[in-house]
Write a protein that binds this DNA or RNA. Structure first.
Length: 484
RNA sequence: GGCGCUAUCGUCUAGUGGCCUAGGACGUCGCCCUCUCAAGGCGAAAACACGGGUUCGACUCCCGUUAGCGCUACCA
């Protein structure tokens, strides 16, 4: 009997890196658990020795933690239902296969991969459904014994009952049914003694008391096999929820080739975990109103499987960028400061040259203008290093023959100021323009070019006051020498 | 091919038979603000796949067609 407690699991296979689709599946499981006061479990499905990738488990765990999806039971943290790595549970699967064999709902198959291959090709040629032909189902006890003692390798297959309709209910899709004729006699135990996904998954979900199986839609078609297994064991079915797939822009299943799919690719590009999590949550789920910006804890409060929709969702990076901007913008200044310092350090800029107060002023000035931390150096490099080049397009547009003289005059005015603030610079510039009988803009634009090398950025007087009097004057003098 | 799932603006989506002249967001475009760039404000273009039913009334329910996707391994 499955208890009332909600227990869900994320069960990745350690074949590489955490896929964004995997992140979304993990997130929905996590949110459902948190929302219902249940447990979120991590289980490693490493039953395919051929595809196992060294270090993938650690990577998976690290990435999940980075995203903030802490699990209650699983590798490293342990729990009462372990081990949580399938390769450490081989004896358990073997025992359960024996039960199935005993009940005669499974049978040994000694067919070679070569024969199976030929059979399948033949079926395909005849436009038949590829399906095991049950040759080994009719083996006598003696033949089986003989094969066994001859040490012939074998697999164990599920004996799918004839002419029944397999029905189950999916929380997201409603009632689904399959004709058993359509279901192949699935291999449960491979010849190397490892279980297949289907067997291990069902056994573990039952033994680990999993209440809800929340996974990608690609599993919907194999769910009848699982249902049959639960029935064969006499176990109660968990609730199923098959999530819509994440898609490439061309609407095929999200894959490499068409962009980045690894969570760490996005992390390395500077996306915040808050933005990625928020974005991925909105792919297939919505709160039912107009809100778009969510923190993880808000999602925990709001999430429900009933609001998950059925159709696949295109992974559209433009919206992710916008969300990154939103989340970065609302981060506390101190946190941004730390991130900025780290970014400067890895960019080879000597962080010790800048006081925290200086960097905080830069952050205030650039807040509305950056979507990523790297934009601080990308969009306003002049806060960290004096310009060495001046944008030719801006020179053409803003720099007049008289600009150099005007700026020299302005530099003189600035120099005379005593510990000036933003409004002092502003007043000095207005005064100079008036004396020169020119527009403020005739000074403002060349000055911006001189101090920044570019034509865009925060308010000019913010820039100048952040840079300070000495640095501003120095940059003016350098610019009038260099800009022709 | 078979089976299954799905189908609202370019994209993410709201919509559970009358509140729909189909709403919001991203993106795009225009205007305002303005020393530039952003941000912000205002506005525009932009969708119910198609055909049948059911109903007084369908985006909403049913059937079919079409299309897309998934599965069809001793992979998960």
């Amino acid at each position: 009997m499955i208890s009332d407690e909600v227990r869900v699991r994320f069960a990745p296979s350690p074949t590489g890196f955490l896929h964004v689709g995997g992140l979304r599946t993990a997130l929905f499981n996590y949110l459902f658990a948190r929302n219902s006061g249940g447990k979120f479990i991590l289980r490693i499905e490493d039953t395919d020795r051929a595809r196992y990738v060294e270090g993938a488990v650690d990577n998976l765990i690290t990435t999940l933690r980075w995203a903030g999806l802490d699990y209650d039971e699983g590798p490293v943290v342990g729990g009462d239902f372990g081990p949580y790595v399938q390769s450490e549970r081989l004896a358990i699967y073997k025992k359960h296969v024996d039960v199935l064999l005993e009940k005669r709902v499974a049978y040994r198959c000694f067919c070679t991969p070569e024969r199976l291959d030929a059979m399948r090709k033949e079926q395909e040629k005849k436009k038949l459904q590829p399906k095991y032909d049950r040759t080994c189902l009719s083996l006598s006890e003696n033949e089986i014994e003989a094969n066994l003692s001859a040490g012939k390798p074998y697999v164990v297959r599920l004996k799918v009952p004839d002419n029944v309709t397999i029905k189950f209910s999916d929380i997201i899709r409603g009632d689904v049914e399959f004709a058993s004729e359509r279901v192949d006699d699935q291999v449960l135990l491979k010849s190397d003694g490892y279980p297949t996904y289907h067997l291990a998954n069902v056994v573990d979900d039952h033994l680990m008391n999993i209440s809800h199986v929340i996974r990608g839609e690609e599993w919907l078609s194999s769910t009848p096999k699982h249902v049959l297994l639960y029935e064969a064991f006499g176990w109660e079915l968990p609730k199923f929820a098959h999530l819509p797939l994440l898609l490439n822009p061309d609407r095929s299943k999200l894959s490499k080739r068409q962009g980045d799919v690894a969570v760490e690719d996005y992390r390395d590009k500077g996306y915040l975990k808050e933005a990625l999590v928020n974005f991925v949550a909105l792919l297939g789920w919505n709160p039912g109103d107009d809100r778009e910006i969510f923190s993880l804890s808000e999602l925990e409060n709001e999430f429900s499987l009933e609001k998950v929709n059925k159709s696949g969702a295109v992974f559209n990076v433009e919206k992710l960028d916008w969300l990154n901007f939103q989340h970065l913008r609302s981060k506390p200044g101190d946190e941004v400061l730390d991130m900025l310092k780290e970014h400067l350090a890895v960019s080879g800029i000597d962080v010790t040259r800048f006081r925290d107060d200086y960097l905080k002023e830069v952050i205030t000035a650039m807040r509305e203008r950056v979507s990523f931390i790297k934009d601080y150096t990308g969009k306003s490099p002049y806060f960290f290093t004096p310009p060495t080049e001046y944008d030719p397009a801006v020179i053409r547009k803003r720099w007049k023959p008289e600009s150099a003289d005007y700026l020299k005059r302005l530099a003189g005015e600035f120099s005379a100021l005593d510990n000036p603030g933003k409004s002092d610079f502003e007043n000095a510039l207005h005064r100079t323009a008036e004396e020169l009988k020119i527009q403020n803009g005739d000074l403002i634009h060349p000055l911006r070019l001189a101090v920044s090398g570019m034509g865009e950025g925060p308010g000019l007087f913010d820039v100048v006051s952040i840079l300070g009097k000495e640095e501003t004057v120095r940059r003016i003098n350098a610019a009038v020498e260099r800009i022709k």
